[in-house]
Amino acid sequence: MSQRLIICVMLLCLPSFTAFAGDGREKSVAPLDGDNPLSNLWSGFYYAKPQTKQMQLDDFENPGLLYVEEGADIWNSRAGEAKKSCASCHGKGDVSMKEAGARYPVYSARLKKLVNLEQRINLCRTDFQKASAFKYESRELLSLTAFVRHQSKGVPVRVNIKGAAKPFFEKGKAFYYQRRGQLDMACNHCHEDNYGKYIRSNLLSQGQANGFPTYRLKWQGLGSLHRRFRGCNSQVRATPFAFGADEYVNLELYLNWRGSGLEVETPAVRN
């Protein structure tokens, strides 16, 4: 290839780069907590293919937004014996849920453990709407979770790991560094030691959680963070935990702490 041709190709690529510049996704962000082992935080967006990025950014193309719309319908629909909707108590989601998507999981004094957004939604269903809980990973729960977290889009993730949450944070951290499965790998081997490198055809990311629930092209649908955990665990030939398992919620807190400072992107689009 001649030098002139290379320069031409580079110039042609330029508009697609500038399209992402300045929206906080193509740049790294400093972690909020100085103890974070990562000195620069990169959203998974950064590692996605250009056409996948474009799909996420375009509201007409992002298939995750169909779920968000369905979630909005559920938000406004009365349910259960109490005949209440989410809106009956919380009003407009874009006001009341502006921060919620950025700060979960949180410690529940009543349950004496962490609850994530999915579980918080189901607690509202059973306690206040007097309705049955949605099944984890059901279309309804994914849609409503995506709707709630979408209200926090652009808000930097910031979780509380102090006080009562601390022991659960420590458990999540221990999980992260625990080798598992026949392949004997821990999360850090791919997502801390080798992000930015290819493992066969896959470009390893930092394994950040800021885009979940995420629309994965591989899934042809929206999926929860716990679905991704289960996939990772199976890939290293380990027995995964159940959706909503305490182990995964603890890990979710730890991961969100590792990503504290990154903006919520829900619904992200990934490979």
Partner: peptide, 22 residues
């Protein structure tokens, strides 16, 4: 190292059923 141990079955954590002891 990230490299799996290709011929070891002990001291592994939560190995999937299909792969246990192999």
């Amino acid at each position: 190292t990230i490299m799996p141990s290709f011929y070891r079955v002990e001291n592994l954590h939560r190995v999937g059923k299909k792969f246990k002891d192999k």
